[in-house]
């Protein structure tokens, strides 16, 4: 049986977090830096909506504004955190293994699995705004060895195709959970079929740019939908340069929402 929810762009949680007061230890770029965060799911009390979808707990559409803005070094455990850079330049620093300082630009993305404990900092050090999508997944086990992997999605070469960025396909980044992230950049009017691993997997489709029809749901820019209980999802792009993230996740046995 098909189940679905639709989350329009304007219905998401909205935060503007300035680097001032007590927040300046958390948000970098004091005094004029600020982060804009549009949250599809998270644990805040902003909406009566969903705390998560399958193994997804955070889906943040974020802008770091002002040179030096971002998140100062802070700890995590367990969560598998992914970032997909859309614009600007992200300096990512983490303590996994021997530690990493990485610079990510448009099309670059990473999977940082915090596991038994890792700290990271996310910074935009240039004057240009940095725009990224952050996704947090519950892990398959607690206290895994921390890890960091990164890759690049070349949209010039991979146009008009569903490309798996994170998951178990060749060339995709590994992640310790039964989830997959794919991206589609397409011309208008093209049909695609997305097949999750099974009908026990749900798919969260988020339109970065353009317009998409997913089954009988029409989504505009920054709209999204979660669809589960189906073996395939028919997609059709309805604008040129439509850009979509598809996040597939194993679902709990009883319902589509996170257990709460």
């Amino acid at each position: 049986m098909q189940n679905a929810f639709v989350l329009r762009a304007a219905e998401r949680g909205h935060d503007l977090i300035k680097s001032d007061g007590s927040r300046s230890s958390y948000v970098a770029g004091h005094p004029d830096g600020f982060i804009i965060r549009e949250s599809s799911f998270n644990f805040h009390d902003y909406q009566s909506g969903r705390p998560g979808f399958g193994k997804i707990r955070v889906f943040g559409d974020e802008v770091f504004a002002g040179a030096g803005c971002g998140y100062n070094m802070h700890p995590h455990h367990n969560f598998a955190i992914c970032a997909f850079v859309l614009q600007g330049e992200l300096t990512h620093i983490n303590t996994a293994g021997e530690g990493t300082v990485d610079t990510l630009r448009q099309g670059d993305y990473y999977v940082f699995s915090a596991g038994s404990g890792g700290k990271h900092s996310e910074l935009s050090i240039t004057r240009a705004d940095m725009h990224a999508i952050y996704i947090w997944f519950l892990p398959s086990q607690l206290y895994l060895p921390p890890s960091y992997h990164r890759n690049h999605f070349d949209f010039r070469k991979r146009r008009n195709a569903l490309v798996q960025l994170v998951g178990d396909e060749d060339g995709a980044l590994p992640i310790p959970q039964d989830v997959r992230v794919s991206r589609l950049i397409s011309d208008s009017g093209k049909p695609y079929v997305y097949r999750p691993r099974s009908s026990a997997h749900g798919t969260y489709a988020f339109v970065l740019e353009g317009a998409l029809k997913a089954g009988d749901i029409t989504l505009g820019r920054r709209d999204s939908a979660g669809i589960w209980g189906v073996e395939e999802i028919l997609l059709e792009t309805e604008a040129d340069a439509t850009d979509v993230l598809l996040v597939e996740t194993i679902m709990p046995e009883t319902s589509g929402a996170a257990a709460h």
Partner: peptide, 18 residues
């Protein structure tokens, strides 16, 4: 949030020191 997850190898020993 309550989770039903096992520890990775050596994870429980590391969790005691968290």
């Amino acid at each position: 949030e309550m989770v039903v997850l096992g520890y990775a190898e050596g994870g429980a020993a590391a969790a005691v020191r968290a």
